[in-house]
Design a protein around this nucleic acid. Structure first.
Lengths: 347, 347
DNA sequence: AAAAGTAAGTAAAGCGCTTAACCGAGTGAG
DNA sequence: CTCACTCGGTTAAGCGCTTTACTTACTTTT
């Protein structure tokens, strides 16, 4: 299509509401009204405008309409690392739900770095996103508090901040840790180590783990060493250190599937066989868990549900459909596969 | 901070350029100039304005500045499925590079669905993204052609469209397929099957595979059955069918690591041992490959490099720093692990 | 038949920013 | 002492859309 401007020059570019109005012989207000289904417009005019829009292939500019106070239909997702299958699963489910509700997601990989977190937040605000989802991380609660003060629609997933009034979706991490440890204890293990990065959710899992051990009267592993990164390498390094120590564990509870995989690698490197010589339980039940060698016993998080819930909460918040913030806590579930076995006393 | 409007009412909201100008006692043009470092501004005024901005915590609105013809610093990424570790790796590397260059990424999961592809494209254009990256998919070339006609800055990754002039980053899929098949042939296999979804890149890999077989005078597997989804389940289903057929393969080349994993599951379910009874080679060399049981022999794609390259190309395109489109073809590399072994004649 | 609605549009202001055009004051050259 | 610049800004238009207030032409109502 080619249109003619006032000077008679022919040109071709994205048509605006003015072009549509001119072509349809109505005012831009009328066009705006048919686009938004507001005000009174006769069926005849509506049809006309609609057909002109189609013909010109007109698409309203979200940028312009956002400037006049409407939504951008974009929400920001702050997530530690897409390479972690747990987070890519979360991202995928959030994106799906967002798409169904008409929203786009902009992804921000934070690597748990508070500086990146702050920088991304500022970028997102400059872009006037309609809301922000925080996935894990954000050990620096001040950032979150500031966001709340600024009344930015907010929802948190896979992390709780008990002191803050904010929509949250999380799994009961304490229970998850308890389940993992109880399982190992019930298999006869007593020297049960834990591998985790120092994050809120992991501290909860650790509390659960500790609770189970205490209940069973086990005093093993009082002082925990954290891992610096949540990946296979770090898990491997720390597990190797533990297994080489004076009083090595017979079982390891890793706070995510990647670390668990690392532990398995470490054991193997030391000539141990899983689960004969070492039991390992992971956390998350990512797609990995069923394909690894051996398949991983792990605590499942309902990833898809979590994503759906958090998106729902956020959108309700954005639309002001909710008087009170909500905290949705889903329950984890132990999935027993082949990386754990009965403890057999060494001879 | 609280400000006073003309009516003397005190309120608090995101400050605009007007607020800054008023507070600093200058015109908004001046403020705009110090923000963008354009025009002539005395050091004294610049300092003043800067300090007022800081004090008011002013953040320019990207929406408003985009409306006046400037960039949105947002780029769209169309990607089939984040749950596939290959794509989440691609997404992560693109996001990283984008962040370094000052751009945000909006993720669109297409599931290879042409309708979703078209719908997302339209949404992205309404939001005035600065450019779009297409990852795989887009079997419907018309959509892409249209985008090019509209002069939308575009780059493609992990897919080639030979007939179109567009910036592209891909791996030599033909070579990859050839490497995979050659490896199996050199191990003595002759009944080598292939598992793939019907996508451009896979058709190339298949050509490479076919070429290797032809070279070796092997006539096996002439009519290929495609898989409907690129996931573990589908791989498993098709592999099982193949293994149960009249003339079962002794080796399978799966066109991605997920399908390969599916093939391994299928073999196991039939009581076969990998690699003794069946050799499997995958494609992508995702994080999975090294953790699976057994570790997967696979054709590696340089994921991180691909992401970086494609982002660079796109940004150059956006900035008009490039006269000609480019097609960057990286070379795949066979990574031999433990899922392949010499063919042993059945007794 | 006059008063009062109502239906269907339109005019115009404003969202927050960029930028082209303009302007006044100082400065150095002739 | 002018003229012509340069410096350091300011004015105002415009980006594409939404929305409030208003207008005009009919219908009803009484």
């Amino acid at each position: 299509m080619a249109f003619t401007n006032g000077l008679g020059k022919v040109f071709r570019m994205k048509p605006t509401i003015y072009d549509v109005a001119r072509e349809a012989g109505v005012s831009i207000a009328t066009v705006s009204k048919v686009i938004n289904n507001t005000g009174r417009i006769s069926e005849k005019t509506r049809k006309l405008v609609l057909s002109v829009m189609k013909e010109m292939n007109y698409q309203p500019s979200v940028v312009a309409s956002a400037l006049t106070g409407k939504s951008t239909y974009t929400i920001g997702l702050m997530i530690p690392d897409l390479a972690n299958p747990f987070f890519s699963g979360i991202a995928r489910s959030i994106e799906d739900r967002g798409h169904a509700l008409g929203y786009n997601i902009v992804i921000c990989s934070t690597d748990y770095d508070p500086e990146k977190e702050a920088k991304y937040i500022s970028l997102l605000l400059q872009k006037s996103v309609d809301g922000i989802i925080l996935a894990s991380g954000f050990e620096n609660v001040e950032t979150v508090r500031e966001l709340i003060k600024q009344k930015v629609p907010l929802a948190i997933i896979a992390r709780e901040i008990p002191s803050l009034e904010v929509d949250t979706v999380a799994v009961d991490d304490f229970l998850g840790g308890y389940q993992a440890a109880s399982h190992l204890i019930s298999l006869g293990h007593r020297r049960i180590a834990i591998i985790a990065r120092d994050l809120w959710s992991n501290r909860e899992r650790m509390r659960g783990y500790r609770h189970a051990l205490d209940e069973a009267g086990i005093d093993y592993g009082r002082d925990v060493e954290y891992v610096m990164e949540s990946n296979v390498e770090s898990g491997k390094a720390l597990a190797e250190k533990l297994l080489r120590s004076a009083d090595p564990p017979t079982a390891i509870f890793a706070c995510n599937d990647l670390l668990a995989m690392g532990a398995i690698h470490a054991a193997r490197r030391l000539g141990m066989s899983i689960p004969r010589d070492l039991s390992v339980v992971g956390f998350d039940n990512t797609a990995w868990a069923s394909v690894t060698d051996p398949p991983l016993t792990t605590v499942a998080q309902p990833i898809r549900d979590m994503g759906t819930h958090v998106m729902n909460l956020l959108i309700q918040e954005i639309n002001g459909e909710k008087k009170h913030k909500q905290r949705i806590v889903l329950l984890p579930e132990l999935v027993v596969r082949e990386s754990t076995a009965k403890y057999v006393r060494d001879m």
